[in-house]
Amino acid sequence: MTPEIGQDLSLFHLILHASLPVQIVMALLLGASLMSWWFIFIKMFSIKRAIQVTDRFEREFWGGGDISAIYQRVAGEREGAGEMERIFEAGFREFMKLRPQTGLSLNAIIDGTRRAMRATYQRELDGLESHLAFLATVGSVSPYVGLFGTVWGIMIAFMGLSSVAQATLAQVAPGIAEALIATAMGLFAAIPAVVGYNRYTHDIDRLANRMESFMEEFSNILQRQVTSKAP
């Protein structure tokens, strides 16, 4: 590795002249960064939409609307429905199916409804939390990958130094600079991923809390409906 003093140490020059392992690490990190940003944006859209739709549904539900009218609307728009709407729909459908059946106790009806809601809730939560594991992985691993690239690059730089009689900074500086780019890229991939992961887990936790309390409240409402009609 001949040092080229005074040559322009532009970023691309450094990347193109890096050793192969360092280049592989850089490519890996670039891919990880692209993927994590992609997921960050996907999650941003989907969580924002989930919160909006949930807000709208809660307003509609607690605004005193007719439950069966809401069910009709939600069942109509299959694809556009939000998470909480689907929980409501699953629970209410189960309830409607169970109620006409004779010989079922009140508890059985409510339990069945609740199970149906719980299942939908789990599924929805799973959908919301998808890709978050990837963000967590990128956030925790890519600094180490970048560090590996840097260590490797510095090793190469110092190996090149061993063959010259007089060691100057100019002989190692380009190698170290190119190696440090790997760390920079690792951090560039990791920081948004960690921020996104924390942000989205927080948002999803809050959404999950809202869904769970809705499930409880809706069960109560259904129970009231049954007991008021049963006698």
Partner: peptide, 26 residues
């Protein structure tokens, strides 16, 4: 109607474009 619904597909293309945009900007 009992079959579980798939989560609607999020705007993947837009997200991809934005991710690319972030990198190009950087």
């Amino acid at each position: 109607a009992d079959a579980p619904r798939n989560a609607r597909s999020p705007r993947k293309a837009l997200a991809g474009a934005l991710a690319l945009g972030v990198h190009v900007l950087f």
